[in-house]
Amino acid sequence: MRHIARRLFGFGLVAGVGLGFMAAPHNAAADWEPKKPVEFVIMAGKGGGADKMARLMQSVIQKHGLASKPFTPINKPGGSGAESLVYLKQKTGDDHVIMVTLNSFYTTPLRNPDLDIDISTFTPVGRMAEDTFLLWVNSDTAIKTIDDFVKAAKAKGNGWVMAGTGKGQEDQLLTDFLNKAYGLDMKYVPYKGGGRVAKELAGNNADSTVNNPSEQLGFYQAGKTRALAAFTPARLDLFPEAPTFQELGKDFVYFMQRSVVGAPGMSKEAEAYYRDVFKKVYATDEWQGYMKSKSLQGEFLTGDALKTYWAREKENHREMLTKMGEIK
């Protein structure tokens, strides 16, 4: 009976919270505290990688009572994140707007100068992780190594389909690298979302992909897809059989940032507050466990270190996009 009573109590709690009766926990450590719910803008659509991560962060904040006011996620995926960036810019000086961002943080303003976005004005809160990329093929094929891959892709020429997410974004940058480095002519076909891309490969509707581990893991574990090589400096624990491109003699490394930024012109106190919250999120078992299970890497970066990182990555992306002919 006690067992049941406890479970019913759990149910009662859910009910109470669901109706909005739970008192917000108090955070005594910080000087500044949000005075109203914090808008947690997500630079991508519902259900994508950035969205899942944002909701995980929100859940962790709520579960551990890390903030005195709720963080309410709002998806603004329009125009590869252009919508979010313009929105944050409009909110200059607002202490209650933060955003989860990825590499479109660099590429979208570079590709659309009309937006007039200067990312160096955005407030650095924290880099929560760096996501990794691998080259994948379907396990039905006889392709086991990068040499097999190059041979097969060369034979098919422009008929080789590389599925990826979006135009001029991460996946296409990697495809472009592979085409140039190995003298290939793969055709890049953009889809909406990494999950869909992973499925196209598993269903044999594409010849290869450059998915993140979190997107391809399920199919990989079921033996439907194979990892050929990693775009990381060292081999990944989850895929020890996949060599890095550096091992294969190509000096190329690529990561996707998973960061939180604040609106431009945020007060120093608010910046410190959010930095503190996300540093705690980073240290929780949930976040660490998630990073490990999805092969995410990277230390927590904040402040000037994060700004320097952005400046460097922006230049890298400018160079890559210029080489591709996407920008002048």
């Binding site: 519902k46 259900g47 969205d51 079921a222």
Partner: peptide
């Protein structure tokens, strides 16, 4: 497949990942 067929299942999927239930063929 770990692929949501609708926006709502996309969020359910996120939930499952958080609870440590990895959707997929296994």
């Amino acid at each position: 497949l770990g692929i949501p067929g609708s926006p709502t299942t996309a969020i359910l999927l996120g939930g499952m990942v958080i609870w440590g239930l990895e959707p997929g063929p296994l």
